[in-house]
Computed example of a mutant assay.
Amino acid sequence: MSKVSVIAKITALEGKRSELIAAMGPMMDHVEANEPDTIQYILTEDTTDENVIWMYEEYASQEALAAHSSSDTMKELGMALRPLAGGRPEITVCNPVRGKGL
């Protein structure tokens, strides 16, 4: 069982980044309370584009990522972000190789 990571870029509609971040709250809470195999789930603001947020996610396994991605909370998040986002998130799935904390 090897770890898997995700880097996601989410672009908000012009001026909607704060609302988009607030809409992420239920998912952030869900991950913390209900996903023990989600190792890291970090929401960050882009420093050069005021409409972009980035998610860095690390999972204990591909199965943990699949459980996260198919959760009811993820489906609800998609609906909550739809009126705030300027399109679908750009998702990159990676295999962590080496690093501090890995």
Rank of each mutant, 00 (worst) to 15 (best):
G99H: 04
W54Q: 04
M27E: 11
R98Q: 11
R88S: 15
K9C: 05
S18W: 00
A80H: 04
K75L: 02
T92M: 14
A8W: 06
M74P: 01
D49R: 00
L65K: 05
Y56R: 06
V97A: 08
L13D: 13
I10V: 15
T48E: 14
E76R: 08
L102H: 03
Y56S: 12
E76V: 03
G86V: 03
C94T: 13
E76L: 02
V6E: 11
G99N: 02
I91W: 06
S70E: 09
L43S: 05
R17H: 06
V52G: 03
Q40C: 01
M27I: 11
G25E: 15
L84V: 09
E76G: 01
T73C: 08
A8S: 14
A23E: 10
A67S: 15
Q62M: 12
A64S: 13
H30P: 07
D46A: 09
T92H: 13
S2Y: 04
E35V: 06
T38Q: 06
A67E: 15
T44H: 05
T47E: 14
G101K: 06
A80R: 15
A23N: 10
I10H: 10
A8L: 11
I42N: 10
A85Y: 14
A60P: 11
S69Q: 14
I10P: 09
T44F: 02
Y56T: 12
M55N: 04
I91G: 07
S70Y: 03
D29Q: 13
S71F: 05
I53Y: 00
G101S: 03
L81H: 03
P96M: 03
T44S: 12
Y56Q: 10
T92F: 12
M28K: 14
L102I: 04
G87N: 02
S18D: 14
V4N: 02
P96K: 01
L84T: 11
M79D: 10
S2K: 09
E57V: 13
M24H: 08
I10N: 12
I39V: 04
T11H: 07
L81P: 00
L84S: 09
K75A: 09
K3S: 04
N34Y: 15
M1W: 01
H30I: 08
K3Q: 12
Y41Q: 09
P89F: 08
W54D: 00
Q62H: 08
I21E: 10
P36N: 06
E14P: 15
V4H: 03
L43T: 05
Q40H: 11
W54M: 09
T38H: 03
S70H: 06
E19P: 06
R17G: 07
M24V: 01
I21D: 00
M79R: 05
P26C: 12
V97E: 07
A60L: 13
S5H: 05
E19V: 05
C94D: 00
E58L: 15
K3V: 01
A12I: 08
E57L: 12
V6S: 10
I91F: 07
S18I: 00
E19T: 07
G101L: 03
A23P: 10
G15W: 13
P96D: 00
V31S: 07
R98A: 13
E32K: 15
P36S: 08
E32T: 15
A85G: 13
L13W: 08
Y59C: 05
I53M: 02
Y56C: 08
L84C: 08
V31G: 06
L20N: 12
S61I: 00
D29V: 11
A23M: 11
